[in-house]
Amino acid sequence: MSSTSDPAGAEALDALVARIRACRICRDAPKGPPLPHEPRPVLRVSGGASILVASQAPGTKVHLSGLPFTDASGDRLRSWMGVDNQTFYDVSRIAIAPMGFCFPGQDAAGGDLPPRRECVATWHDGLFAALPPFRLILAVGRPAQAYHLARLGLAAHLKASLTETVAGWRQVRAAGAALAHPVAVYTLPHPSWRNTGWLKKNPFFERELLPQLQADIARALAGGQGGDAFR
């Protein structure tokens, strides 16, 4: 799955991904109630991807398929990004790493539970240390925003609510562009149908944010380097 010029680095990344996929911590040594079903960690990473989709956790359909975003949320996300299925699932170009690798189960109302805490505590720091810097990061949902903004030294841009954090997208993007390894960071709501009302109440998202996001994604996929990806 790795595609890097460093054979030792590629081998180490592949070994790490294999350990993540074999993880059963949330069933065998959980922080709180154990996972109520067999774990099935889902992620797609490589040493060559320029874009990271940092999502929340798999849903029921993804738990069954083993492939991220094989649901209506995935259709909406790909529309937001302006990419087709083939591009989205090309792991040499786009990495997908949720904050919780396994489907966390559902609450009494039928909504998905938050990502399991075990994943970040066990895997994420090592995973992102093993991956090269990305040119573009989609931080989908508040857990991903909190983790990746802190990881990049941009924690001050995490506001009191998701709406405020997304509304500050220009400032987040500019701050990422100023890093030693420039990266276009986009803080996004989850593309679930449950957020359709949010989209209607916040028209700036589709009118202003998405065109810039799609332009930056096109540049990143075309191989734009450094500051060139933000012009």
Rank of each mutant, 00 (worst) to 15 (best):
L152R: 09
L152F: 14
L152S: 02
G153D: 09
G153M: 06
G153Y: 06
G153L: 06
G153W: 05
G153R: 04
L154T: 04
L154E: 05
L154N: 07
A155P: 00
A155S: 14
A155L: 05
A155D: 14
A155V: 08
A156S: 14
A156C: 01
A156E: 15
A156P: 00
A156W: 04
H157R: 07
H157S: 04
K159P: 00
K159F: 06
A160H: 13
S161G: 08
S161E: 09
S161L: 05
L162A: 13
L162E: 14
L162F: 02
T163D: 15
T163S: 13
T165P: 05
T165I: 02
V166H: 07
V166M: 10
V166P: 05
A167R: 14
G168M: 05
G168D: 09
G168A: 07
G168T: 02
W169I: 02
W169E: 01
V172N: 03
R173A: 09
R173D: 02
G176K: 03
A177I: 07
A177W: 10
A177H: 11
A178G: 08
A178L: 12
A178K: 14
A178F: 10
A178W: 09
A178Q: 14
L179H: 06
L179K: 06
L179D: 05
A180D: 15
A180F: 03
H181Q: 15
H181P: 00
V183I: 10
A184S: 15
A184Q: 13
A184Y: 01
V185M: 11
V185C: 07
Y186F: 15
Y186R: 03
T187G: 00
L188E: 04
P189Q: 11
P189A: 11
P189E: 13
